[in-house]
Design a protein around this nucleic acid. Sequence first.
DNA 1: CAAGACTAAACTGTCGACAATCGACGCTTA
DNA 2: TAAGCGTCGATTGTCGACAGTTTAGTCTTG
Lengths: 228, 228
Amino acid sequence: MRTLSPPVGLPALTETDLVGQVARLLTQAVVEGRLAPGSKVVEAGIARELGVSRAPVREAARLLEQQGLLVASPRRGFFVRKFAADDIDDIYDLRLCVERHAAVLAARNLTPETRDMLRRQIDVLHQTADLEDPARQVEEDYRFHRLICEIAANRRLLRLFDDLASEMRMVIGLIGRLYDDPHEIARTHEPVLAAIEQGHPERIVAHIDYHIGHAWREVGKLVREIPA
Amino acid sequence: MRTLSPPVGLPALTETDLVGQVARLLTQAVVEGRLAPGSKVVEAGIARELGVSRAPVREAARLLEQQGLLVASPRRGFFVRKFAADDIDDIYDLRLCVERHAAVLAARNLTPETRDMLRRQIDVLHQTADLEDPARQVEEDYRFHRLICEIAANRRLLRLFDDLASEMRMVIGLIGRLYDDPHEIARTHEPVLAAIEQGHPERIVAHIDYHIGHAWREVGKLVREIPA
DNA sequence: CAAGACTAAACTGTCGACAATCGACGCTTA
DNA sequence: TAAGCGTCGATTGTCGACAGTTTAGTCTTG
C-alpha cells in the first residue's frame, strides 16, 4: 500500500554542490572576460579566492574543459581557451547543422502551445531591444534558439546546443558588444518562426541558414578585427 | 642563431596521466558490459582495484559523465547509464544530422588522397568481415565514418562524432552482437563513398540517410527486444 | 505482518599535505 | 654575448583522512 504523500514538484536540493557552483562562477568569469583568453587558471588561486580546497576546483575545471572553455595541458595546468578565426567557423558551422535539424524537428512537433512560446519569446526580444543591455539581449536571443531545440524533443541535441552556446557566449564576450540594431535582430527571428509554422523543410532550412549565417558573418568579421 | 637540436619526431610523453588511464579503463569496462547498466560505480572500489586514490577516479568519472556513459547523482555516486529506446533514437537522430553534414563537407574537401583513404577503409571492412570478430568489425565501421568527419575538417564536429561513437559503442556492447552479414554491411558503404565522390549534396544525404537509417532500425529493433 | 523507527556500515564530498614537475632567473662558458 | 646549465619558488598530481550523508539491515509497534 502506498502511504507516501504524492510529489509536489519541489526541486531536489543539493545543498553542497561545490563543483557545480565553482563551475558556474568560473564560467561567468570566462565568458565575461575577467579571465582573459590564454591566461592561466591557477587552481590554488581560485580555491583560495573561493574559500574551498583545490579538489572541487579541479573537477570544475575539467568540466569546463569538456565544454571547451578551458584547455588542459598536462602538468602545466588549465588555460582559458583562445579562439582563432577557424574555431569560430567550426562552431558556427556546427551550430548551423544542429539548428537546421532542430528547426525541422520542431516544425514536426509544433503545437499551438509551443508556437505561442516562440511567438512570446520574439516579443521579449523586441522588448529587450529597448533596454540598453547587450548581455540580456544575447541571452534572450539564445533562449529563442534554445526553445526550438527543446521543441525538437531530442535531449542529446539540446545538450549539444547548450555546449555550443557556452562557447558562443565566450566568443561574444570577448568581442564586447555585438548588436548594432537590436530591433533589427529581433525582426530577423520572425521569418524563422514563420517558416517553422509553414513546415516546408527546405524553407525552414533556408531561413535558418540566412538567420544564423548573418550572425556567423557578423561575429566572424568582428573576431578578425581583433588582434587575437 | 638557432642552437636547439632540431625536432626528431619524438612523441610527447604523458608519464603520469592517471585520470586518462582510469577513464580509458572505465570506458572499456562500461562498453564491454562488465559494469552493467544501472549499476553503481563505487569510487573507492575502482580506486582500490587500480591501486590509486579516489581523486583521479572521481575526475575520470566526471569525464565519462560528460560523455554520457555515466550519470551522477549528488551524494549517491555515479551509475552506469541506462539506455531507453528513446535514448537510442536521440543518439541516432543526432548522428544522422552530424554525418549528413560531415559527408557534404567531406565531398567539398575531397582530394585524391582522402578519397583513397576512404576506399582503403572499405577494403579493410571487407577483409575484417572474414574474421569472426564483431568488436573489430564495429571498430572498423566507425573508423570509416570517422574518416568522413576528419575529411570534413571541423574539429568541433569530429569531437562530437567521437562522443556519439562512445555512446553508440556502449549501446552495441549491451546488445551483444550486431551484424548478421558483415560482408553485406561492408558493401553498404560503397554507395556512400560513391555519392561523396560524385558530390551532389542531395544524393550524399540520401545515401547517408539510407546507410545510417539501416543501422538505426537494426539497433532499435534489437534494443527493444532486450527487457531493459 | 507491514509501516515506520532505529542502528551500523558504506560511501561521498571535501580538505590539507607531500612529492614531482615546471618555469623563470641568474650563472657559466665557449 | 648568447646558448646552455643549475637553482629555486610556484604549481600540479596524487594521496590519506575525516565529517556528514546515504543505504541496508534490524527492531519495534499498531
